[in-house]
Simulated assay, not measured.
Amino acid sequence: MNTGLPMMGQSASRVDLDTVRDESAAVSKGPARAYAAVALLAIGFGCEGNGATSDPILPGLASSGAPAVLSRTRPLMSTVFQIQVDAPPPNAENVIRQAFEEIERLESVLSEWRDDSDVSKVNRLAGKKSVKVGPDTLRVVDAGMDVSSWSRGAFDLSWAALWGLYDFRPDSIKIPTSEEIRTRTALIDYKNIRVSKKYQTVFLKKRGMAIGTGGIAKGYALDHAGAILRDAGIDNYMIFGGGQVQVHGKRDGRPWRVGIQHPRDTGSYFAALESTGASFSTSGDYENAVFDGAGKRWHHIIDTKTGLPGDKSLSVTVMTSEGIYADALSTAAFVLGPEKALKMLRRIAYPAEAVIVGADCKVYMSPKAKKRIRMNVDLVDGRLPNCKP
């Protein structure tokens, strides 16, 4: 769906949903084919990372004799979800289908584009009355409030007041005026969102406010799909959805390797993180980006305090234990910039690691990320080669 809206922190791939067939891929050797322009790529082979530069990690290659991977795709939540299972057991087809059905169920509850969804009801009644919501909506909104508080508004769940303000389509670029921005940002303040766990209600205090849960909802969907796989005895899998990746177990007996895209060379991956159980999200200024007549880059990750695209980072990759927090944290870290983002991650109780490319092309990493990363390139004075802000 081409909305022309500022999709906060979503590094979703640019996929034509009409070209994707339900459960289109078959059992194959090695990782399934990748989608174009994704910021993260799960690569089904690897060895223990030590932070040193290694041989280049090339998407789409696997060790010879690798066991079969069952891969299925389905268009959901206005993007494409893909599930890969390593050495699939006999029940894998049915279990993957159940996982997709759960994502479809969550879409009907959490979608911002369905008039009958909980989120749409909350937005429609902003400034009027509280709305009783289901447990899934309550969990997603509560997670969004967590990150809003942790980041002190760098990610703000009420960012959706900016809907329609920008249009990032190359053939119809729309950049708002300063007055239009001021009018909308006045409606953004997560402190004006009231959540009652006791009564299971959400209330927006001002008319015109709106919450946006898109990226958080996709991560939550990954969590639920992963739980279905594990409960059925499937321990080695990768799930991709809307630019987020969740991995569990191993591929070909080794940790999954998740590639991090070069922010100024979108056909290459400058590094990879290895894990046997984590969720990843990347926020980058190269997705949903356009240039105006003066050559200035305008992108979809908006600093809600200014109403303008964030300018302190080029890309941020966050690794967490749960998908529900990954997207919002990568957005918050992008807006904050490297130093403040790493300080935030040290401060909060929730464990999260990050690889950040600053506005100066310098690469910053949290301590555990340094231990897990596999570099594909040699940094020059700590900066990415072939990188211009």
Rank of each mutant, 00 (worst) to 15 (best):
G4H: 14
M7I: 08
S11F: 14
A12R: 15
R14Q: 14
D18Y: 13
D22H: 03
D22F: 09
S24H: 03
S28G: 05
P31A: 13
A34N: 09
A34K: 12
L41Q: 05
C47E: 11
G51H: 09
S54G: 09
D55A: 00
A62Y: 11
A62E: 04
S63Y: 07
R72V: 08
T79W: 14
T79Y: 14
V80P: 09
V85S: 10
A92Y: 12
E93V: 11
N94G: 15
R97K: 14
R97P: 02
A99K: 15
E104N: 11
S108A: 13
V109A: 08
V109I: 15
L110P: 09
S111Y: 15
R114N: 11
D116Y: 11
G127W: 15
K129N: 11
K132H: 10
L138E: 01
V140T: 02
S149Y: 09
S149G: 02
W150A: 01
R152Y: 05
G153W: 09
F155D: 01
D156Y: 12
W159I: 01
A161W: 11
L162A: 00
Y166K: 09
T177H: 10
E180P: 04
K191S: 07
K198G: 01
Y199N: 03
V202P: 07
R207Q: 05
M209L: 08
G214H: 15
K218E: 06
Y220D: 00
Y220G: 01
L222A: 02
D223T: 02
D223W: 12
D223C: 12
A227S: 11
I228T: 03
L229G: 00
A232H: 14
A232F: 13
G233R: 13
I234D: 01
F240R: 04
G241N: 14
G242M: 13
V245A: 04
V247E: 07
D252R: 08
G253Y: 13
H262K: 08
R264Y: 03
D265H: 09
A272G: 10
T276H: 06
T276P: 06
S279G: 08
F280H: 01
Y286E: 03
N288T: 02
A289S: 02
A289D: 02
V290L: 05
G293Y: 11
W298D: 03
I301N: 10
I302E: 00
T306N: 04
P309D: 05
P309H: 06
K312D: 11
K312H: 14
S315R: 06
T317N: 05
T317I: 12
V318I: 13
V318L: 12
M319C: 10
T320M: 10
S321Y: 10
E322L: 14
G323C: 05
I324K: 00
S330E: 06
A333Q: 00
A333T: 03
A333K: 03
L345M: 08
I348W: 03
P351T: 03
V355W: 04
I356S: 03
V357T: 07
K362M: 09
V363L: 06
V363W: 09
K368F: 15
A369G: 05
D378P: 00
L379C: 06
G382A: 08
L384D: 00
N386I: 10
C387H: 12
P389G: 07
